[in-house]
């Protein structure tokens, strides 16, 4: 367990009287990627929000780099763990320029050198520096998601939590964002946890995949085994069949 960047053990999350996450355990090595797939309501996004610190109402044990997490997180935690949201239209403040959005993490953490850091961040996510003083509504969906990724990286975190980062985007833009995410992971040795309903997207980025159903992690499977169809649980088999059927009708 000590070698892993993220370790989650028996995580439970309750909304009111209902258990939404019913005892989930997984771990992700440093620089690795863990994908979570499942249908809406399966609890996959809830896990991400508990890890990120957005939801403090959980029980169980979570560790980042060997340090146990408390329900309330300090500022240092948010320098190490960041999140990218599904909807790039909703995750950027509509009244703030891109410049403002990117400088916010620097101001909060008291990191200097704002000017060069912003220019470098824009270059890193392949955005022209002309977008710097634009407002979110002046950008396309793909550009906004790049801004959201750049913002998450401003404070140089080690862990990036990705909540359906491409499902609001067109497929051609999805490819660009996925390529960007793999390039960033290589250059910065980032650890990813990615949630998606799209099996092909998750399998593209993550070598290990957890399948969620009704708040339980029903199977943890390597991308390789998933591709080859060596599935254990019926739900995994069903999701795989649906994905393959659309991709290549002749194969089923």
């Amino acid at each position: 367990m000590t070698a892993s960047m993220i370790a989650v053990e028996n995580l439970r999350v309750r909304f009111g009287t209902q258990d939404v996450v019913k005892g989930v355990s997984f771990s992700v090595p440093r620089g690795g990627s863990f994908g979570m797939v499942g249908e809406s309501g399966s609890g996959k996004s809830t896990i991400l929000r508990a890890v990120s610190g957005l939801n403090a109402d959980w029980t169980g044990r979570m560790e980042i780099d060997g340090v146990a997490l408390m329900p309330k997180r300090g500022r240092a935690f948010f320098r190490r763990v960041q999140m990218v949201f599904q909807d790039p239209y909703g995750s950027l403040h509509p009244g703030q320029t891109i410049d403002r959005a990117l400088s916010e993490p620097l101001l909060v953490h008291g990191i200097g050198d704002i000017e060069t850091r912003i220019l470098r961040a824009l270059a890193e996510v392949a955005l022209p520096s002309t977008v710097r003083f634009r407002f979110p509504h002046q950008l396309s969906g793909g550009q906004r998601q790049r801004v959201a990724i750049a913002r998450a990286l401003m404070a140089e975190p080690e862990v990036l939590l990705l909540d359906e980062p491409t499902s609001a985007l067109d497929v051609s833009v999805q490819a660009e964002v996925l390529n960007l995410l793999s390039a960033l992971q290589k250059s910065r040795n980032l650890t990813y946890v990615m949630v998606s309903h799209n099996l092909a997207v998750v399998a593209h980025l993550c070598p290990m995949i957890g399948v969620m159903q009704g708040g339980n992690l029903v199977e943890t499977i390597s991308a390789e085994n998933l591709r080859a169809g060596r599935t254990q649980h019926a739900h995994t088999t069903e999701l795989r069949a649906l994905s393959v059927e659309l991709e290549d009708p002749e194969e089923v």
Binding site: A175, E176, L199, V201, A203, H204, E247
Partner: peptide, 14 residues
């Protein structure tokens, strides 16, 4: 540019 479950690609074409 679609990622494929059956045929993995190291890099997606753009």
């Amino acid at each position: 540019c679609l990622p494929s479950l059956v045929k993995p690609k190291p890099q997606l074409s753009v």
